[in-house]
Amino acid sequence: MQEHEKGLVALVVVGAAIGLSKLLVSQEQITMRLAFGRSILGGATSAVAGVVLTRFPDMPLPALVGVGAAIGILGAQYLEAWLKQRADKIGS
């Protein structure tokens, strides 16, 4: 596995772990659907940190994972709030 592939896998795994941990500390009832959805959302938003490599191609993996974690947390919260808002408008 090449270095950039390892970085992408690390970002997705960290993002999925963040999504699951946010679910565990929330008051929501844990379902398989919710756990799977949060994992996908966290992993996808963390993977966006790979874009940082276009600006800083020599960034070490721990720094990239840190950026991915930050983007994963903020991005997932933003996307979840936006999707809930859209669903409320459609349902009304």
Score class of each variant (00 low, 15 high):
Met1Ile: 10
Met1Gly: 14
Gln2Tyr: 09
Gln2Lys: 13
Gln2Cys: 03
Gln2Ala: 08
Glu3Trp: 11
Glu3Thr: 10
Glu3His: 10
Glu5His: 07
Lys6Pro: 09
Lys6Tyr: 11
Lys6Gln: 15
Gly7Ile: 01
Leu8Gln: 09
Val9His: 09
Val9Gln: 13
Val9Asp: 06
Ala10Gln: 02
Leu11Cys: 03
Leu11Trp: 13
Val12Cys: 07
Val12Lys: 00
Val14Thr: 14
Val14Lys: 05
Val14Gln: 00
Gly15Gln: 02
Ala16Met: 12
Ala16Ile: 06
Ala17Pro: 11
Ile18Thr: 08
Ile18Asp: 02
Ile18Cys: 01
Gly19Val: 02
Gly19Cys: 06
Gly19Ile: 02
Leu20Asp: 00
Leu20Val: 09
Leu20Gln: 07
Leu20Cys: 08
Ser21Val: 11
Lys22Ser: 07
Lys22Phe: 14
Lys22Gly: 14
Leu23Thr: 12
Val25Leu: 12
Ser26Leu: 13
Ser26Met: 15
Ser26Thr: 02
Ser26Val: 14
Gln27Ser: 15
Glu28Met: 15
Glu28Gln: 15
Gln29His: 04
Gln29Lys: 14
Met32Asp: 08
Met32Ile: 14
Met32Glu: 11
Met32Lys: 10
Met32Ala: 15
Met32Leu: 15
Arg33Ser: 14
Arg33Gln: 15
Leu34Lys: 14
Ala35Lys: 04
Ala35Asn: 06
Ala35Asp: 07
Phe36Val: 01
Gly37Leu: 00
Arg38Asn: 13
Arg38Trp: 13
Arg38Lys: 12
Ile40Asn: 03
Ile40Val: 15
Leu41Tyr: 06
Leu41Asp: 03
Leu41Gln: 02
Ala44Pro: 00
Thr45Asn: 01
Ser46Leu: 10
Ala47Tyr: 00
Ala47Trp: 01
Val48Glu: 08
Val48Arg: 03
Gly50Cys: 04
Gly50Lys: 10
Val52Ile: 08
Val52Cys: 11
Leu53Asn: 13
Leu53Tyr: 00
Leu53Phe: 01
Thr54Asn: 12
Thr54Pro: 06
Arg55His: 12
Phe56His: 05
Phe56Val: 14
Asp58Lys: 13
Asp58Gly: 04
Leu61Met: 15
Pro62His: 09
Ala63Gln: 14
Ala63Arg: 09
Val65Met: 14
Gly66Cys: 08
Val67Tyr: 13
Val67Cys: 10
Gly68Ile: 05
Gly68Gln: 03
Ala69Ile: 00
Ala69Phe: 02
Ile71Tyr: 07
Gly72Ser: 03
Gly72Gln: 05
Ile73Met: 07
Leu74Val: 11
Leu74Pro: 02
Leu74Glu: 08
Gly75Val: 04
Gln77Phe: 09
Gln77Cys: 06
Leu79Asp: 01
Leu79Arg: 01
Glu80Phe: 12
Ala81Met: 11
Trp82Phe: 13
Trp82Tyr: 08
Trp82Cys: 08
Leu83Pro: 04
Lys84Val: 05
Lys84His: 08
Gln85Asn: 11
Gln85Ser: 11
Gln85Asp: 11
Arg86Glu: 01
Ala87Met: 13
Ala87Tyr: 07
Asp88Gly: 02
Asp88Cys: 01
Lys89Val: 07
Ile90Val: 10
Ile90Ala: 14
Ile90Met: 02
Gly91Cys: 02
Ser92Lys: 07
